[in-house]
Simulated assay, not measured.
Amino acid sequence: MRQHDIRNGRDVKLEGGGRQRHPSGGAKEMLIGLEGVELGADGKTVSYTQFLYPTNALGGRRNTIDSTSSFSASRNASHRSLSLGRANSNQSSVDTGNDLGEFREYDPNLLDDPQWPCGKHKRVLIFPSYMTTVIEYVKPSDLKKDMNETFKEKFPHIRLTLSKIRSLKREIKKLAQDECGYEEPTVAMAFVYFEKLVLHGKLNKQNRKLCAGACVLLAAKIGGDLKKHEVKHLIDKLEERFRVNRRELIAFEFPVLVALEFNLQLPENEIMPHYRRLLQTS
């Protein structure tokens, strides 16, 4: 059986189980995927034209934070939130079935909410003229456990703990900003891509590092005009930092792009909160 690869226009051979063997011959077969992302397996042809916009709609826009507001007005006119149930996926990665309607509007402050670590240990005292919050001392391990339990109750469809999500974001920042020298806007874009995948239940233990690496790779390409050797250097760093196979990482970039509905140009209100926090911690 043969299938046409929509990414590079060549035919690839499919074996009996529906797994795709790359023409290179020695590549590892892809078993990790994203729920709701249809790539045309089993001989199907999938169109992504509903995610695309005419080239002239971009109007000479530049990839900077200051210019994102001019594009966001036209983009918001036909804004579509991420919808994981758009396609019926046969991939074996995940199986949720949760109603994600209330999480379709992305909030850049949600996962970085400073109230999360407080949990049940927080006490709010209200007085006639002011209100104050007191947080009792608690062991870091107990605080972490309580935070993750509270997070799981609020977001049952997310299969990663909040502490693990924040740990992955720290890895993204350390790699992109400290090791590769990317500026805060690029790191902020990677955070937005990553958090959108998280909030829509895309991540699990198997694909979390590939998702994080693909988000950094996409943000770096959008944030600057990378040369070939710069892309290779970034992939080398991602492979080392996240301990993933470079072939899987490169192959995972397109499913993440589809999961984000090809919407890599972000409005200012989604980037700026992350950008400000990055400046404060620099």
Rank of each mutant, 00 (worst) to 15 (best):
R246N: 14
F191K: 14
E268M: 12
A251S: 10
L168F: 02
L143I: 09
A188I: 07
P185M: 09
K232D: 12
G224N: 09
C211Q: 05
M30R: 02
R19L: 02
R62E: 04
E15W: 07
N8R: 07
N76R: 14
L197M: 12
S47V: 14
K152D: 08
M1K: 06
F194T: 03
V134H: 12
K228W: 01
G60N: 00
E230S: 11
V198Q: 07
K232H: 10
Y48G: 07
N204D: 11
M131L: 14
N245I: 00
P140M: 07
C211R: 07
L238Y: 08
M131A: 14
L260N: 06
L203M: 05
C118G: 01
F103A: 15
T132S: 12
T150M: 12
Y275D: 13
K164P: 00
E240S: 06
G43H: 03
L260E: 02
F71Y: 08
G33C: 03
G101M: 08
G40A: 03
K152H: 13
L160K: 03
V258Y: 02
D95N: 15
E153Q: 13
G17V: 01
N88C: 07
F254E: 10
R166C: 01
G9W: 06
P108V: 04
R277I: 12
E195L: 12
T49R: 03
G85L: 09
P185L: 04
E239D: 14
K202W: 10
P128G: 08
L162A: 03
V258G: 01
I135K: 00
L217N: 04
A220E: 01
G181S: 04
D146E: 13
K173S: 11
N148R: 04
K139E: 15
S69P: 00
E35C: 01
N98M: 09
G40Q: 02
N76K: 13
D11W: 14
M189V: 11
A251K: 00
K154N: 11
G25C: 03
R21M: 10
L217Y: 07
R10E: 15
D5K: 04
C215N: 04
A190N: 07
G223S: 08
F242M: 01
L218C: 03
L210G: 00
H233L: 09
P117W: 10
K164A: 00
Y275M: 11
E248S: 01
K205P: 02
N98C: 10
Y106D: 04
H229C: 04
I65K: 05
L111K: 13
K196V: 00
